[in-house]
Design a protein around this nucleic acid. Structure first.
Lengths: 206, 206
DNA sequence: TAGATTGTTAATCGATTAACAATC
DNA sequence: TAGATTGTTAATCGATTAACAATC
């Protein structure tokens, strides 16, 4: 006997709630309501209450939600009440920008190694990291017990690297390459392709 | 009397189809089927046929879809059978990476101006562009008739810039800042926040 | 108490899938 | 013709919303 799995579409909204609540916390707000949170995000208050109620009773009738408490709960639910080590593959312009980005740590992630297969880049700095040779990536990821990876390599190389990541025990891949990858179904994958978003918007523009 | 609007969730898949078909074209394939396309994307063949049938009858029974023809149709539907001028705001690491990215042009977009409000950056190169002062952005976007913008500035500045973009007649904003923005409902907005994707995956990881 | 907001139920709404006639 | 695949219908499935009792 096991509880029904929570729909992934709900899971997808929780990080959004967490982000908005974290911003409220920086504004020194203590309490919020499903209505206020929904207004900020463009989501109905009913949906927010329904989503949160999947995981517990976090609010108080007549009052709303304590922001710090709800942040703690969401971080726990999303498993970002810890810092995940992340491998970054690709030290081109985008890879370097990612390596330099300061917004990962306080949201649960830290890059611990940067890889590239270009001999001109290996050994050179990328942000505060020294670029390592992709050749050794499987062994190194296994040794370091890294389970999350970001892939910022050309589309033509992405599948080959992804195969190695899977072999190395990576369980979650964030792919910046504009291509669809095949990974085992027990490995999570998410994609970022800015052009998909742009094209989705130009459809509506005459 | 007007035809029912096509659901946005369908519009969101069309760029994905276009991307996969374009890849097939580079592989010198001429024909594909809803089944093959679906297998590549992890989408059911029924859904692909249903989605496409919203816009016309693009396939042949017994045969499938001509790839080049279907690419043409999708480009027409998504309005990327033209090149859209894009303004990029933010010339930090990420902005520079975006400015240098070579993958926009053959998918319907070209950056025509890069802005930053840091005096140390204004006048300096970002890729093949010279960074311009954000101070003048409204007039310049109006003059250049730009209607699409990418926003790669810190979250704290994003809303202020977005307000100016709206004033300048921008109709579509791709926001890389990790924050939710308020824009009029006739302005399209899409977000890219890598941490949202990472947190969505760690939920499933013990 | 009066006012406000939650958590939850039931109803509505919309999206996906299965199946198959049409037809290449 | 035989085999294959589309376009479409109807059925299923799942997500969202409206509404309200509970209660702070």
């Amino acid at each position: 006997m096991c509880a029904a799995a929570i729909p992934d579409i709900i899971i997808g909204r929780l990080p959004l709630y967490l982000r908005a609540l974290s911003k409220m916390a920086t504004e020194d707000k203590e309490i919020t309501s499903s209505q206020e949170l929904g207004a900020r995000l463009g989501i109905s208050s009913a949906q927010i209450r329904k989503d949160l109620s999947q995981f517990g009773e976090f609010g108080k009738q007549g009052t709303g939600y304590n922001i710090v408490f709800l942040i703690d709960q969401l971080r726990r639910i999303l498993h970002v009440n810890q810092i995940w080590d992340v491998a970054l593959i690709g030290a081109g312009d985008l890879g370097k920008a990612i390596a330099n980005y300061g917004g990962f740590l306080n949201r649960g992630f830290q890059i611990v190694a940067v890889y590239d297969n270009d001999p001109h880049k290996v050994g050179q700095p990328a942000g505060k990291y020294i670029v390592r040779a992709t050749r050794n990536i499987v062994d190194e990821i296994i040794t370091k017990k890294i389970r999350v990876a970001m892939l910022a390599v050309p589309a033509s190389e992405a599948q080959g690297i992804a195969d190695q990541l899977v072999k190395a025990g990576i369980r979650a891949i964030l792919c910046y390459a504009p291509t669809s990858l095949k990974v085992p179904e027990d490995v999570r994958i998410q994609y970022i392709d800015p052009v998909l978003h742009l094209q989705r918007m130009t459809y509506y523009m005459p």
